[in-house]
Design a protein around this nucleic acid. Structure first.
Lengths: 134, 134
DNA sequence: GTTTGACCTTGCCATAATGGTAAGGTTTAG
DNA sequence: CTAAACCTTACCATTATGGCAAGGTCAAAC
């Protein structure tokens, strides 16, 4: 059952790029893979699961730093779910802040764009507004 | 009336950091400032206005690359407002995409966090979900 | 048995915008 | 004259990702 995959196949399986898998290893997120005699990295199914875990956490926007913590919690049978939830909550707060910031930009910029004719004439409220002393 | 400011004062006036003003100059966004004999950069009111323009465009999330275009359009009396509006619209589209992406993360993560007790027990739906093969 | 194509390796560079630090020159106020 | 508050350049760091180059390896086709 010990199916071992080279990095390219591990990449396909996990949805990460080989480049990133090497990067995660080198930055301490993953333990160093065993290698073939030729130096090729090899991944077993447990490691593939870890890679998937990372991909899914990345897709939720967690930083690699946070993912390191999440991985440690995941692998610790003694963890307290409190710790996991706290990480999630902090990240949610950041997401919420970013959304608010972007929505503010969206709102201001939409108003500006709406008041710009967007034709062949040079007059443009957007530039006028950006140029304002404020 | 030719009030000339050193970079620190220009920074205060414009709301940018001195560091960034130098950076904008070095990356071609701003023409090179005149200097005192000692090599200090000097800014006149027209350049202060340019700095404010940059700050305000940055606060709307425009990239420096886009801001370069915006500055050129601003300074071109022959511009067509069409070009400005197009830049704004493209940027708005990016903002909208990012908001959607973040909202998706927010939604998924909120659901996960809600289903995690967040107490002293190890059981945690968040980790369970991240670990899923998917 | 050699060639070829598809892998793998490491290492360096680049991105975007911003901040920090260090080593050193200048100006101004006391 | 000296000390504080400026200014200068140059280099490094951040975050996550990609690209390229030079070279080793493996498997299949000839």
């Amino acid at each position: 059952m010990a199916t071992l995959l080279t990095i390219g196949d591990a990449a396909k399986e996990s949805g990460l790029s080989a480049k990133m898998i090497r990067h995660y290893e080198q930055s301490g997120l993953l333990r160093k893979s065993p290698r073939t005699d030729a130096g090729y990295r090899l991944y077993n199914s447990e490691q593939i699961n870890q890679l998937r875990f990372i991909r899914q956490a990345r897709s939720l926007g967690f930083s690699l730093h946070d993912i390191q913590s999440l991985l440690e919690l995941w692998q610790d049978p003694q963890r307290e779910s409190r710790a996991v939830k706290q990480l999630a909550q902090q990240h949610l707060n950041e997401i919420t802040s970013k959304i608010a910031e972007l929505q503010h930009m969206q709102q201001v910029l939409t108003a500006l764009a709406d008041s710009c004719r967007g034709d062949g004439s040079p007059h443009c409220h957007i530039l006028q507004q950006l140029a304002k002393p404020n």
